[in-house]
Design a protein around this nucleic acid. Structure first.
Lengths: 231, 231
DNA sequence: GCGATGCTTCGGCCGCGGCCGAAGCCCCGG
DNA sequence: CCGGGGCTTCGGCCGCGGCCGAAGCATCGC
């Protein structure tokens, strides 16, 4: 069965420490240069180059040249979901010296996932929006209600020209095991939160810091209690 | 970051041709003996034994001894979803000598996925049930309506003691890219279809054959037109 | 008890593939 | 046009891990 071989090939591609580190570094949806990815993986530029080429050819990554830099990002949302799924079953595996440090706690609170928000913050946002009937979520799509349109407009998100599919995919994140808003709407919400200064990238990785303005904003606009998001 | 290492380890585990073949063989949710899996992977018993041990220890597989046989199955639904996700991105990769044969066509029509039905048949069933408001599907759960309870009872599925979570997870299958009913309800529907003789395992693998009785039953109970399911 | 069958453990062979140094290519700024 | 930085290609080293033969346990049938 040829489809089996492809399965193994793809998994093997992800199953190398250096490549896995690169993929994890890209999981927040940003595009990074080859050099940055080499550093993230702890290998030299030439080694990284080989890895990046293979992953791009296999359709895991997409590459874009910009001047003398080459920016690499995850090729599709499906790849991001796949990596998250891998993290999920890896985390469910028998605990081997886990040492759940503060970095993990920060990740669980708020992070980016591909192009949208994840973690307790994102789940709370999705819950709040559903509770107020601003959005509906179905497994294969989702919709913004008229009330939701107004709400989003108030937030400063006007994107939606009538039939844009502002879908939500579960993107069941590995920490919360509950869905949050992904898709076009998720991306719009995420970038708006950045614009408003509600969240900010933390130094070390893809964990996000919620600013004082953010806590106020989330409470105000979404009715989110800080203690529901804080560890 | 220790979580990265776990990611690579898990992926590497899946990324071996022999192990991938075993996992693919288990994807339909049955439990197979070590010998059968060795044959499926095309390796000797002792090699297979090593692979099975490692996958079990990593939480990918679960094992159960029965007499002098040891039955292995996927440890959790999450593992099944992961493999399907892997197949999805592997299939999306640049076509390399695909040769989409009749086996693929059969798989696309109807197959089992872990413990429930997948393929066009399963998607049609989910669509039909939602269209008639027999079930609701949300990304993190799902519900059977009162009308749905009656419908299921007519089908011979009485399982549901009040608050049983008959959840649906998208299980977005790689062929249809649309959700179908998984979870407890999915499993119940699947086994009931077998009991009723509506579907039958095909010789070669996890593709299912829809019997004449089945075509009639699906049309009758779900209003599914055969041409919506046939290739 | 004895042999057969199913599975696991041990030991050793071997090849795939990741790694880096060196060299080459491309694109930029001056 | 030239120097420099980012990235890729080439070549060779080396170790991890998959593979099997042989031997060791377990379980069943008789």
């Amino acid at each position: 069965m040829p489809t089996n071989a492809a399965l193994a090939e793809t998994a093997a591609l992800i199953g190398d420490p250096a490549r896995a580190a690169m993929l994890a570094a890209l999981l927040d949806g940003r595009a990074l240069t080859a050099g940055e990815l080499a550093a993230a993986a702890g290998v030299t530029a030439q080694t990284a180059s080989g890895h990046l080429g293979r992953m791009t050819e296999a359709g895991l990554l997409a590459m874009e040249r910009q001047g003398r830099h080459r920016y690499h990002r995850l090729a599709t949302p499906a790849v991001a979901r796949l990596i998250e799924g891998l993290l999920e079953v890896a985390a469910a595996a028998p605990r081997r010296a886990v040492a759940t440090g503060p970095r993990d706690a920060a990740l669980r609170q708020a992070r980016t996932c591909y192009d949208h928000l994840a973690g307790r913050l994102a789940v709370a946002m999705a819950d709040a929006m559903r509770a107020r009937a601003l959005i509906e979520l179905t497994p294969d799509g989702g919709a913004v209600t008229p009330a939701g349109q107004d709400f989003l407009a108030d937030l400063g998100i006007h994107a939606t020209p009538a039939r844009t599919r502002l879908f939500c995919r579960p993107c069941l994140d590995w920490s919360e095991r509950r869905p949050h808003v992904a898709g076009v709407l998720g991306a719009a919400l995420c970038s708006r939160c950045f614009e408003l200064g509600w969240v900010r990238r933390r130094a070390g990785g893809r964990a996000l810091e919620i600013t004082p303005v953010g806590w106020a904003g989330f409470a105000d606009a979404f009715g989110i209690a800080p203690e529901a998001v804080r560890g």
